[in-house]
Amino acid sequence: MIDVINVSKTFGEHEVLKNINVRFDKGKTNLIIGQSGSGKTVLMKCLVGLFPIDSGTINFDGRSFSTISYEEKKKIRQEIGMLFQGGALFDSMNVEENVIFPLSMFTDMSINEKIDRANFCLKRVNLENVNKLFPSELSGGMKKRVAIARAISANPKYLFCDEPNSGLDPATSIVIDNLISEITQEYQITTVINTHDMNSVIEIGDKIAFIYKGNLWWEGDKNSILNTDNKEINDFVYATELTRRIKGK
């Protein structure tokens, strides 16, 4: 469980996050949705401590980055898996080395155990026989999937995914959504996902936080989002002709 309490973040003059309060539950896929530029990525980077926050607190099951020692912080970090919006694969390493990197760094697994684990994770993101390719030899969507495999390889307790299915076709998107949702329940992970994919919202949105102009504008889940009369969220959800048509029926 992650508690976000009164968190604000400003870049120079630009107030990106304004006093955000939200709780992300364990064993659930928690979605952060909002328009492009609304501050989703910034919020996620604040959560994992890549951006220092101006005020407020973020608690990982009661442990706050701001009050604990460097060693404890490192320990929490080792429980975190994160998928970056751009993938952020290590381009000096091939696919397999990328996926086993967290294992090599923090476990004493043998090389065969690590490779087994890598193959298992790669299979779950629908990738096979690409172990020896380098990131520069992969398509955009393949990079994304390798990055997901790397994020989950060390069995994280907290999983952060910044736009896991941007750049993926609808079918692969669903595979990824289902994978994240399954492992979240199976291993009781606290999962936080940034997305503006309406399909993900409706399929896996156990909890949904809508960010609008830096504010937490609305909270709910995949059922309540379709029936709310909040204007901004309706503008967001029913932005496309397709969704409007579905609603009309």
């Binding site: 980077k45 994992v48 401590g49 890549l50 912080k73 490192k74 320990k75 929490i76 970090r77 080792q78 975190i80 994160m82 970056f84 751009g86 952020a88 694969l89 290590f90 381009d91 990197f101 967290p102 760094m105 923090f106």
Partner: peptide, 17 residues
């Protein structure tokens, strides 16, 4: 520098390295 701008350093950082 390339690792920095492509967020590879951030990725290492959040692993606790």
């Amino acid at each position: 520098g390339t690792m920095r701008v492509t967020e590879q350093i951030d990725a290492l950082e959040i692993m606790g390295i």
